[in-house]
Simulated assay, not measured.
Amino acid sequence: MKFRCERDALLDALAVVGRAAGTRGGYQLVLSGVHLSLDGDDLALTATDRELTIRKHLTVAGGENGEAVVTARLAGDVVRSLEAGSVNVAVNEEGIHIESARSEFSLQTMGAEDFPQISDVEGDSVVIGAEGLLTALRQVVRAASADESRPVLTGVLLAAEEAGLRLVTTDSYRLALCDLPGLEVLGSEQSVLVPSRALQEVIRLLGDVEQVSVRFSEREASFSLNSVTIMTRLIEGDFPSYQGLIPSHQPNRLTVNREEFINAVKRVRLMAQDSTPIRLDMSATGLDLSATTQDVGRANETVDASFEGEDLVVAFNPEYLLDGAEAAPGQEIVLHTVDALKPAVIRAPEYEEFLYLLMPVRIN
């Protein structure tokens, strides 16, 4: 295999697919590699850990067709170290040789025959706008769990609703929900559970495209964005029944400027250490934020806000609270509460499609 391409283009391709490369050794050592396959002027780079697969096509000046597997991280580091300009790559029995200007590297390769055979996801493709999907994913993915011991909570539920597509995540302490009206991606009443890790990779790439092609099979999903395809296994299991968690009546309503609230929370959380929550004191006079950590210090800040309901003091995990405020669209957010112990809901005026629920922290 021989080809020539620009350093920056090759580096970008290695960085994109390398995020799917596995990190385990032993008999799965080949999964730490990136598979290179040249056909004419088309170079396909693929990496997988069997759960997530990323493939990118790159147009190069092809010289001799072939394939090879090289350690993803090392190949990326080598190409990154090169000066900008043309890079020549050649593969023979001794390994892969990378030359640029006066630099030359020779890397050991792994058996291409040991690399998993990756098939395209079966099923009809649906082309959707990237902007709306990107907004929705940014709003919900942050609330997915990172605890692999409960796999269903690490996924994003995509469910077909009468109005369109609904995305939901929860880690049992908070829940994020976003509707995409009019979007038909799944069959009637169908739902799938997509790993949040895969969708985080989709988020990285959606900002550079206008459309994305989506496919769902019984056990897999794929997202094609120009020259990149992200494939992932769907999570098996039942997503928690979340509808009953959303309060139907919340008498207290706090309306506050979103940016001012976010900045205040960021400042006050500096004193919310060692799992200390942030306290919100809501009354007709406005909003007071505070946090106290013993032997560290205390922070307090007053924020202009409109409050309707009975005076209430409620506390939240500062990171979860900040995530909800940052995910909300628009210039204002509304915090709906019942009391200091029941779930609170962050909404955005004029954006009924968004909802972020979080559990309060019990305080003395």
Results as ranks from 00 to 15, higher is better:
residue 95 G to S: 04
residue 95 G to I: 04
residue 95 G to M: 03
residue 97 H to V: 13
residue 99 E to N: 10
residue 99 E to Q: 14
residue 100 S to G: 14
residue 101 A to V: 10
residue 102 R to V: 12
residue 102 R to P: 07
residue 102 R to G: 08
residue 103 S to G: 08
residue 106 S to K: 15
residue 106 S to F: 13
residue 107 L to P: 01
residue 107 L to I: 04
residue 108 Q to L: 15
residue 109 T to E: 01
residue 110 M to F: 15
residue 110 M to Q: 15
residue 111 G to D: 15
residue 115 F to I: 10
residue 115 F to W: 06
residue 116 P to H: 03
residue 116 P to M: 02
residue 117 Q to I: 12
residue 118 I to M: 11
residue 119 S to P: 00
residue 120 D to H: 14
residue 122 E to P: 11
residue 123 G to Q: 01
residue 125 S to D: 13
residue 126 V to Q: 09
residue 129 G to Q: 09
residue 130 A to H: 05
residue 130 A to V: 06
residue 130 A to D: 06
residue 133 L to Y: 04
residue 133 L to C: 05
residue 134 L to W: 11
residue 136 A to S: 06
residue 137 L to V: 04
residue 138 R to C: 02
residue 139 Q to E: 03
residue 140 V to M: 05
residue 141 V to F: 00
residue 143 A to M: 07
residue 144 A to W: 02
residue 149 S to P: 10
residue 150 R to C: 09
residue 150 R to T: 10
residue 153 L to Y: 03
residue 153 L to R: 05
residue 154 T to L: 04
residue 154 T to Y: 03
residue 155 G to S: 02
residue 157 L to D: 01
residue 158 L to C: 09
residue 158 L to A: 10
residue 159 A to T: 11
residue 159 A to K: 13
residue 160 A to Q: 15
residue 160 A to M: 11
residue 161 E to Q: 11
residue 162 E to M: 09
residue 162 E to R: 14
residue 162 E to P: 09
residue 163 A to C: 14
residue 163 A to T: 15
residue 164 G to H: 03
residue 164 G to T: 11
residue 165 L to K: 00
residue 165 L to Y: 00
residue 166 R to G: 03
residue 167 L to D: 07
residue 169 T to E: 05
residue 169 T to Q: 09
residue 171 D to A: 06
residue 171 D to C: 04
residue 172 S to D: 10
residue 172 S to L: 03
residue 173 Y to M: 14
residue 173 Y to V: 11
residue 174 R to L: 11
residue 175 L to Q: 02
residue 176 A to C: 08
residue 177 L to A: 08
residue 177 L to N: 09
residue 177 L to K: 14
residue 177 L to C: 10
residue 180 L to T: 01
residue 181 P to T: 09
residue 182 G to T: 01
residue 184 E to L: 12
residue 185 V to W: 05
residue 186 L to V: 10
residue 187 G to P: 05
residue 191 S to H: 06
residue 194 V to P: 00
residue 196 S to A: 15
residue 197 R to G: 12
residue 197 R to T: 14
residue 198 A to R: 02
residue 199 L to W: 01
residue 200 Q to H: 11
residue 201 E to S: 02
residue 204 R to M: 05
residue 205 L to I: 08
residue 210 E to L: 05
residue 211 Q to F: 08
residue 211 Q to P: 07
residue 214 V to S: 06
residue 215 R to L: 01
residue 218 E to S: 13
residue 218 E to V: 08
